[in-house]
Design a protein around this nucleic acid. Sequence first.
DNA 1: CAATATCTCCTTTTT
DNA 2: GGAGATATTG
Length: 672
Amino acid sequence: MKLNPGQNEAVHYVSGPCLVLAGAGSGKTRVIINKIAYLVEKCGYKARNIAAVTFTNKAAREMKERVAQSMGRKDARGLWISTFHTLGLEIIKREHKVLGLKAGFSLFDDQDTFALLKELTEDELDEDKDLIKSLASAISNWKGGLVIPQQAKNMAKDEQSQLFAMLYQRYAQHMKSYNALDFDDLILIPTLLLRMNEEVRTRWQTKIQYLLVDEYQDTNTSQYELVKLLVGERSRFTVVGDDDQSIYSWRGAKPQNLVLLGTDYPRLKLIKLEQNYRSSQRILRAANILIANNPHVYDKALFSELAYGEPIRILIAANEEQEAERVVAEIIRHKFVGRTKFGDYAILYRGNHQSRLLERALITNRIPYKISGGKSFFSRAEIKDIMGYLRLVVNPDDDNAFLRVVNLPKRGIGPATLERLGHFANQKHISLFEAIFDVELNHHLAPAAVNSLYQFGTFIVDTGEVATRGEPVEAIKQLIRKINYEDYLYETSTSAKAAEMRMKNISELYRWVTEMLEGDELDEPMTLPEVVTRLTLRDMMERNSEDEGGDQVQLMTLHASKGLEYPFVFMVGVEERILPHQSSIDEENVDEERRLAYVGITRAQRELWFVICRERRQFGETIRCEPSRFLLELPQDDLIWENRKPVQTEQQRVETGKSHIANLRDMFKKES
DNA sequence: CAATATCTCCTTTTT
DNA sequence: GGAGATATTG
């Protein structure tokens, strides 16, 4: 396929820093892929000296695959295509000596982090969930903004932030003694390292000679800085982004980085991609009109040369059960009429919990579906159990992992025993695991308890030895067998069927681990510690969802839909307090929700439905729902509201003396 | 003291 | 409708 002039320019401009403003569906991925190929084939770069950073593992995976197809597997080998987090992990891994980190560090996911914070702040925060959560996000913000604990303390003005800064410091100390890192560390640590250590900086600047960054509007301060440090003086890079698709500011993303880049690099070349190849003109028009309500830094005029297309429909359901049924019925009808595939349909929603009823409706109608993101594979108890074991084997100082698995299956080690063990370990400033082997433990615990603990500890050590001896696959096999995990599942599950399901999940995990340990044509073999950290980044899960690509209706959150496209898209729950979400209305941050709606709309290629309810059950009470303000902002002549004359004429407007929008609101109220 | 049964809270988005 | 804390039993 030929590139249009803008795309062409973006691909061939390689002499300096380059910013590509790429509207939705304007072929930005194609630009990146072509550019990588161009750099290797025409500019003399070696694959191993080019890095491309994407926002999700899935996107990285896809890009790797597409690049490999376009330039041949051999040439593509060695390219660094990953997320920021995986790149950071790689840097940490290779520089762990300089950093003074032990090789087998644990990667804490946010649940681990939460558990640790809860533990550490019992006295100060009194187990208050909301407080702990805001502490967690404060810490995450600090880390994302490159603020270390000492600086946080210095900057703290009020009492609350002083307390939080102090707890941040305590958290950091404990993470260190657990030999653990959290997600934010994966960016923070490499950035600080590159900033302070010239030798390391030079090494990485030599290694990565050209850097490409996708979804640039989602970078936060530390990622911005990391990019800057990696590209150095040469500043050979291309970043691609779209401020209208910035939907992650709640976790520190700074779309202003798009502007900042212009001041930091005066020679920055700005290229706009404005032709949309994805959506019908009508869908694009709706999206453009909606997003025009937001402020803009760079003006952008997206256009499409595709057909004008079908009207956008708004389905109105009495309640949330009906909402799900309506969607499913419409898919069945539409598929029958249009002879389409289930895989052509996507259902998008604001929050993960909204998927439940949809799932149920799909199941009862025997429609195959795939639900991505959300309550993932990795939050299943059985997976967390086995991962807990693996983490402990790799890094015995990981107290979180220890606590998860020490009495699983039951080994007669109850809370009382653990309480004492914890107290003892705390006094001696050692990990729980080390405490087991301390001779003085006898003075604090009954012999039976000490013995159970000792047995457990020895078991972990033994497994670790098998793994390091070069037989990690064998070690995992033994592990699952020796803890009688299968029996445990059958005993604890409510039905044999459920146990079977869980065991299947375990086999799946086992398969992935084995694959990663052994490597394949695109990926090098990994060590067990690497596998464990990579799985925590949910790397494998997303890879898997691809080859499972049967003919299935796709369900996902609006956030998860970014970067994807589907011929037919349903957006459900497009109501006030859901699609602008209540909290964003309270915080007066509706613009970001509008961008979220914009992202959803621009996923659609051919047809688009919005679905709303008149009322919905929210924990016991039924509450009335109002259509989202975004629906009222759309061009009404492109919409068909169900059971209703679509458009108010100019005459009606004059007669009633009310605005278009007020009238629509009235109509909705009368009917419900 | 450990294992199981009941009751409560809360539900934005994710690397 | 699910996880986590509390009440009850073995």
